[in-house]
């Protein structure tokens, strides 16, 4: 189901990009038709995203993990690994473009999945470069999953007093 939805979305996007490139080849100014088509694709994409979320990750079991960087002048992120109950659920290697987007205030949606109700241990391992040395640091949080969605934010922050990065996990109240 998930693959089918994504394939449909991707196919639609390929078609729109092909259509757009042909249109641009004929005329540098986007036509009203092209813009209307883009709006239709965006609306369809939105509906697919909502459908995907509702079908695959119902609120009662949903867990979403985000990653943010507050300033981040003391840390250049290379990679992150996330585990739930000692099981690796996602990992990411960061390009310069991604770290710049985080540095400028972007937030990455790192993982969306399902989790049973009850107590769970969330852990994240961050690797990267600091001002004077390489860092490999972890952050842990014990959470109690209820029937509400569980939203967690992995935060990389600057500690001005210690002149080094600090890492923690924030649980958002839903």
């Amino acid at each position: 189901m998930r693959i089918a939805l994504r394939s449909l979305a991707q196919l639609t996007l390929i078609l729109i990009s092909l259509y757009s490139s042909f249109s641009y080849a004929e005329d540098a100014t986007p036509t009203a038709d092209t813009e209307a088509l883009k709006e239709s694709v965006l609306t369809l994409n939105r509906d697919l995203l909502i459908l995907e979320e509702e079908l695959l990750y119902p609120a009662s079991s949903q867990v979403a993990i985000y990653l943010s960087m507050d300033l981040g002048t003391f840390f250049a992120l290379d990679a992150v690994k996330v585990e739930i109950d000692n099981q690796l659920i996602t990992s990411e290697l960061y390009s310069d473009k991604q770290t710049q987007a985080l540095f400028r205030g972007g937030v990455q949606r790192l993982y969306v999945g399902n989790l049973k109700t009850g107590e769970h241990e969330i852990s994240a391992i961050f690797t990267g470069r600091g001002p004077n040395k390489d860092y490999k640091r972890g952050a842990k949080l014990i959470v109690n999953k209820t029937t509400d969605p569980l939203v967690l934010e992995l935060r990389i922050q600057d500690s001005e007093s210690q002149m080094q990065p600090k890492f923690d996990i924030k649980q958002w109240e839903m």
Binding site: Y66, S68, D70, L71, K97, Q98, Q100, A101, L102, R104, G105, G106, V107, Q108, R109, V151, E153, R155, Q157, W172
Partner: peptide
């Protein structure tokens, strides 16, 4: 500094890329 709404942050993350 950090954003108060995650969806807005995710939007920025894509936009900056």
């Amino acid at each position: 500094t950090s954003v108060s709404d995650l969806r807005y942050g995710v939007t920025l993350y894509h936009y900056y890329q």
